[in-house]
């Protein structure tokens, strides 16, 4: 257990849950991707997120000190105990929605992991040193697609704008516990502009609550599917 005074169980859990739920949503694209090369790409990103989730959840369990491992945390908590941001639990929608979610998430994750890689917590710094590179790749991938969908055909532009508008309000929650919103805007706004997309106005109200365990209705369906088999065989090894 290496934590510092400022690294809490809840904090690490939040990062781990972000990655876990993001991975779960990406897994749903398996055999449904718009092209075979994209199957491989999305699976890569899902594997990265899942790998990060496993490292973070394991660390969180150690910090908690109650003997919970990565699987206990992933499979035996109810939605009120999950600490992910709402953004990651939203349904995949169409490919534009998925890319909008990935653009916003990966830009945030890269900044957050950069922060942690330079932080005092040695364990987190070690994890973050790897995940920064992965987030950089995810951001590249999402950017590539945002440009092509935004500045592609009329239909793709319409869908991508709609996706951005829909997901935008969920990005505010990302910065409740850090000062990264402006650096994040510095990454995201130019991408939207180059993609000929309109950056949405700040909404009068932004959805929040994930970090406190108050989620959307989507999460419990997601968890039901994710956890059903594990829970059906208590104590079993796989």
């Amino acid at each position: 257990m290496t934590g510092t005074a400022t690294t809490t169980f809840e904090q690490v859990l939040g990062l781990g849950d972000d990655a876990l739920i993001a991975a779960q949503r990406l897994c749903e694209w398996c055999t449904r991707a718009p092209e075979m090369e994209e199957e491989v790409a999305l699976a890569n990103i899902a594997l990265d997120q899942l790998g990060a989730a496993r490292l973070l959840l394991t660390y969180a369990g150690e910090l908690e000190g109650a003997g919970r491992d990565e699987d206990d945390l992933a499979y035996l908590r109810d939605d009120r105990e999950f600490r992910n941001v709402l953004l990651v639990e939203l349904p995949n929608g169409d490919f534009a929605v998925t890319m909008a979610k990935l653009l916003f998430l990966s830009a945030y994750q890269r900044l957050r992991y950069e922060q942690l890689a330079a932080g005092e917590d040695a364990r987190l710094a070690g994890i973050a040193a790897k995940t920064v590179k992965e987030s950089t790749y995810h951001l590249e991938h999402a950017t590539l697609w945002t440009l092509r969908l935004g500045d592609g055909t009329e239909e793709s532009h319409r869908r991508m704008q709609q996706a951005v508008d829909e997901i935008w309000p969920y990005t505010y929650e990302l910065f409740d516990d850090n000062a990264l919103r402006q650096p994040w805007l510095n990454i995201v706004e130019p991408v939207l502009a180059e993609a000929t997309l309109t950056r949405p106005e700040d909404p009068p109200w932004a959805p929040r609550g994930g970090r406190q365990g108050l989620h959307t209705e989507h999460l419990s369906y997601l968890l039901a599917e994710m956890q059903v088999l594990h829970r059906a065989h208590p104590g079993a090894q796989w």
Partner: peptide
């Protein structure tokens, strides 16, 4: 080989399919 609409995508696809990054 890979199929891609342009060079940047081709490079990413090639990275994913042939080197798994």
């Amino acid at each position: 080989s890979v199929h891609a609409p342009d060079a940047a995508t081709a490079l990413q696809n090639a990275r994913d399919v042939y080197t798994r990054r």
